[in-house]
């Protein structure tokens, strides 16, 4: 068990598992998060695997005619989306550190990740 992480039970867990730009999945996941926020349904927003690339700061996709995904994720707080989790090992496996990320997140280990999923009713894994 990792003992430091306090998590709240949420009925929806969103797992963002793909890098931005290469597919539409990152944006699709974010749009679901925004919609849930507008309807005041709290959720767990979990970044796993290549999904952690979504959170890298300094993204500048203008030349590939895309909107900056990291800059969009910076607005989560304004939407009242507070349960933002990043899988610690996914960062380590990609040689990334927490201070390269665009917003405040909670790092979680496998154990907490499994717990978050097990406490949800709906899991959307994009």
């Amino acid at each position: 068990m990792d003992n430091q992480t306090q998590t709240k039970k949420q009925s929806i867990s969103l797992i963002a598992r793909r890098a931005p730009y290469g597919s539409g999945a990152a944006r699709q996941t974010l749009d679901i998060a925004f919609a849930a926020a507008v309807f005041e349904r709290p959720l767990n927003y979990i970044f796993l695997g290549d999904g952690v690339y979504q959170l890298l700061s300094k993204q500048d996709p203008e030349a590939i005619q895309n909107k900056p995904h990291g800059a969009a994720l910076e607005t989560l707080e304004l939407y009242g989306i507070d349960e933002v989790y990043v899988h610690r090992n996914s960062l380590i496996q990609r040689a990334l550190s927490e201070d390269e990320l665009v917003c405040k997140v909670t790092l979680i280990d496998d154990c907490t990740l499994k717990e978050l999923v097990a406490e949800s009713i709906h899991v959307i894994n994009l």
Binding site: L48, G49, D50, H87, N89, D110, L113, K114, A118, V123
Partner: peptide, 21 residues
């Protein structure tokens, strides 16, 4: 418990992601 639905071939599935969950 959860039901995991695995729809991609082994070479196209991230084992690390899967096993973390």
């Amino acid at each position: 418990h959860s039901l995991h639905i695995i729809a991609k071939a082994p070479t196209a599935t991230s084992l690390a992601d899967l096993l973390a969950v």
